[in-house]
Amino acid sequence: MTEEQFTAAVERYGDMLYRIAFSWCKDRADAEDMVQSAFLKLLRADKSFDGEEHMRRWLIRVTVNNCKKLLLSPWRTRREPLEDYAGRLYADQPEDGALFLAVMGLPQKERVAVHLYYYEGYSVREIGRLLRTNESTIQSRLASARKKLKNKLKEAWDSDE
């Protein structure tokens, strides 16, 4: 993989992977580490992909696996209070900050399903494949998450979708 290809992949998928990793780790530094590990793996794998979507899904899978391993690790000492991070991110949009904190308050499995569904636009079936989880399980995680978000955010979160 050339430097140009690598840079293009980082620019295209860096933020996406970071958001997914953040929804797992709830920590900026950890999430950045996970993304960096995924891109390092991309470099070292020297893999050929059948298209952009193939590479995208591969990177998501690697990031998800990295996050799973991290959560099992006892060496997770760095912690930035989520409220501090949200305070910096959403200084001008407190509503967005409220949604961010509400999602981050969900159980980890629900957070990830919500993120892949609402942000990345994956279907329930696709999320099931990415997380190697049953479709109906994803569906119930989403339903549970929606209910909690609606309770927390009241009118700011509809019960549609």
Partner: peptide, 10 residues
């Protein structure tokens, strides 16, 4: 959701 989480950048 997209507006809120779009603020996250690596």
């Amino acid at each position: 959701y997209i507006r809120a989480f779009g603020a996250l950048h690596v």
